[in-house]
Nucleic acid binder design. Structure first.
Lengths: 151, 151
DNA sequence: TGACAAATAAGAGTAAATCCTAAATAGTAG
DNA sequence: CTACTATTTAGGATTTACTCTTATTTGTCA
């Protein structure tokens, strides 16, 4: 079990960036400084930021970036598998650049999304019947409730 | 295993309604005919309707009901745990009256949300550590991929 | 280096959800 | 039954989270 915190080293960040630029090229996507900046900001944090939150961060480095670009880019990242949209309920989309298997707990009050990793949950098996009918790309256990700070 | 379809009998619907009125009273909420009507319509279907869709259905019985009331009521249902919100991919919120414990599979192409129920998934256990730190209200296994129609 | 297609910025546009008001209505407790 | 208070209705205003359009810029590749 491991709840919350997890950081990325500068070395890992660079490694991820290299992997990401490769992935872009592979898919015929241009490697623009905006894309890199957005990807790096996303991967740096484990806060599952919204497009809005990321936009603010990226603006510190890239003052003229538009929210639209951030939004579009995040959807692109989701399409190519460099990030994904956290399953959630209703509000603004939340993104996750994390590639390790992990689960999410979402606080229904503050909307915070907290990572956790629990070995048995990483190993759940998709039933045969589902595999036959659908292509299952991602699986995760999703918990909702009230977090430590809100209760 | 059970994918997709599932209906509710008139008897079960009534049982749920009784449970729901009890829950309302417990929470000091008035048992209004609108609330009941909305709840019953939601529980009857497994289509994960939006507020708009539900409003139309309820209007067949209750022609003067306002969309605002439907919206407000659905959020109330969510608050007291009589329903919950499923991710609507940025579009309109979709609601689920949670007939039985079940899981969701979401198609990344057509955005369709498909219910399924798989005994082992219903019985997953939340780790002690999580229970101590958070109040866990809901747990589910969430799968994403490509559905039978899209692939 | 230059052409071209892709990507971006800026700003307008949109749809859903939420909030506001005020007046009418209707559960609920005493 | 009555008083109290929650809830509903209606219609407009506001907010949120995108989404589109158009002109401009910029990676990429020959």
């Amino acid at each position: 079990m491991n709840i919350g915190e997890s950081t990325i080293s500068a070395a890992d960040l660079d490694k991820k960036t290299v992997w990401f630029t490769g992935l872009c090229r592979e898919r015929g996507l241009k490697v623009t400084p905006q894309r890199i900046a957005i990807y790096r900001e996303l991967v740096k944090t484990n806060e599952h930021p919204s497009a809005e939150m990321l936009c603010e961060k990226v603006r510190q480095v890239f003052p003229s970036i538009s929210l639209d670009t951030v939004n579009r880019t995040l959807l692109t990242l989701n399409d190519i598998g460099a990030a994904f949209i956290v399953e959630g309920s209703g509000d603004a989309k939340r993104f996750d650049g994390g590639l390790d298997e992990h689960q999410h707990f979402k606080c229904v009050k503050c909307k915070r999304v907290i990572d956790f990793s629990h070995e048995p949950f990483n190993n759940i098996e998709v039933p045969q019947e589902m595999e036959e009918m659908f292509v299952v790309l991602r699986k995760s256990v999703y918990l909702e409730g009230i977090c430590d700070l809100c209760r």
